[in-house]
């Protein structure tokens, strides 16, 4: 095994088995809510759960082939979704969208009643 193989093993392993879960751990727990021990446990657990689930679902639904590119995109996609959810919570997008929908719904009901 060459040095490149070892580096690929370590960083590739972290990319699949740790990074997506790390991103998702921030979706479930804010930075201050848990310490690094919990985050490490969650990062590995979530990555090992989410990555095969996503790949299998994509393969089943869209017959996505499991290649290096599709795997990289899936893992990056998981990280991006987590980032969007974190930002949505931080800036209250989810609440504001929900409130807008609620207002629109009540308006339409009022107009129907009148």
């Amino acid at each position: 095994m060459t040095a490149v193989d070892v580096l690929r093993l370590i960083f590739g392993g972290l990319f699949v088995l740790f990074i997506p879960g790390l991103a998702w751990s921030y979706v479930f727990f804010l930075r201050k809510n848990i310490d690094w021990i919990e985050r490490i446990a969650l990062s590995f657990g979530l990555s090992i759960a989410l990555v095969p689930l996503s790949v299998f679902w994509l393969n089943w639904l869209f017959d996505m082939k499991i290649t290096l590119l599709s795997t990289l995109l899936t893992v990056c996609g998981l990280v991006v979704i987590a980032a969007v959810l974190i930002l949505a919570r931080k800036y209250g997008w989810a609440n504001s969208t929900f409130n807008k929908l609620k207002t629109a719904f009540s308006r339409s009901q009022k107009s129907q009643n009148s």
Partner: peptide, 13 residues
């Protein structure tokens, strides 16, 4: 096995 497929593709494991 799906997980080890992915470690094989990405990490060469």
């Amino acid at each position: 096995p799906v997980l080890t497929d992915l470690t094989y593709i990405v990490a060469g494991a």
